[in-house]
Amino acid sequence: MSDSDPHLHELNCQNIWAGFKQLVPISFFVVIFGLAFGLAATQAGLDNSSIIVMSTLVFAGASQFAALELWSVEVAIIPLAVTVFAINARHLLMGATLYPWLRQLPPTKRYTVMLVVSDANWAMSMQAFTRGEPAMGLLFGGGLALWSFWILGTWLGLYFGNAIQDPVSLGLDMVMGCFLLAMVVGGQKDFRMFIIWIVAAVSSLLAYWYLPPNSHVIVGALAGGILGAIWLEKKR
């Protein structure tokens, strides 16, 4: 993790466009997710413009699906806010993990980049940053790709959602899981990291079973992180 290299956090049109293109293949799956969301939202009784506005402003699939579960004649605000916060709390961790590189940017750019942080662009740019490669364009451009394809998919779902009757039978619910796993497997692998992963896995499972819903991500991540802070890697 060297953050003294000024090129690591460079942000310009070329690398934003390059990052955009790098995330286009994954965005194909995002379109299908968006399509499923558009369809589900229609079925939950939302009007078309609300659905598009939600995908544009919220841009966080899992929490949007959860909001549909709470949607009826009236929506209770506190349970909605808590649910959305809990599902999206992993963004807090993404921001924290990106901070060593983001802090090189002026605050306006820093918070603009964070507007489009999502699982896929975070995981890919984090991997690149850790390898010592520049990835700010990947983070921001890739985020813009995911965001625009998410809106496009949602819009398509309003009109063509019925084309995909059962996304689960096509394995489409596994896209994000498989993607994130590929990132884990492609990342740093050594004995220390392996033990950290085991601790993260066990504590997230315990939280999943015994603590309130959606707390498992935070619990597992913090457990792994704390172990990493106690058991330091030898300085290279």
Binding site: P100, V184, W197, H216, V219, G220, L222, G225, L232
Partner: peptide, 29 residues
């Protein structure tokens, strides 16, 4: 929040351990 935390070696190790752990914590359940 991180903008108030000094980035020491220990904090960096915390962050890098946490970035893999987030994924593991999502995937295990």
């Amino acid at each position: 929040v991180m903008s108030f935390v000094p980035i020491s070696y220990r904090v960096k190790q915390f962050i890098s351990a946490m970035s893999g752990s987030v994924l593991i914590a999502l995937l295990t359940p």
